[in-house]
């Protein structure tokens, strides 16, 4: 059964090359608009639960600004120490110029 999508923000709020974090259902969600499209991941690093909000996004990966762990935006996989566990990823879509995220 397909999950339920929730409005995250207007597409115009996250132009290509930028990102935005917001709480949905009590979860911090980070949406990144990259050259390869939109990606939605947990906004919290799996290493020491620090916010990823200000992390650098490059080549579809995000680097935690606090200790430098890096995650694949598409799969959530931890790519670099000190993280060894993945971060959750969420389905994301654009509907009527709104970015929507499915948390299920």
């Amino acid at each position: 059964m397909p999950g339920e999508f929730t409005r995250f923000c207007a597409l115009a709020e996250i132009p290509k090359g930028s990102k935005k974090a917001a709480k949905l259902d009590d979860k911090w969600v980070l949406v990144c608009h990259t050259n390869d499209g939109l990606f939605a991941v947990s906004g919290i690093c799996s290493h020491q639960e620090k916010p990823l909000f200000n992390g650098r996004v490059r080549n579809c990966k995000i680097t935690c600004p606090v200790h430098g762990a890096r995650f694949d935006l598409a799969t959530g996989a931890a790519l670099d120490l000190p993280a060894t566990k993945p971060i959750p990823t969420y389905e994301v879509r654009v509907s009527d110029d709104w970015i929507e995220v499915c948390l299920d």
């Binding site: 200000n54 992390g55 650098r56 680097t63 935690c64 600004p65 606090v66 200790h67 430098g68 762990a69 890096r70 670099d80 120490l81 000190p82």
Partner: peptide
Amino acid sequence: RAPGTDGCA
């Protein structure tokens, strides 16, 4: 920082 990594801080 872990060896061989890069980022922004």
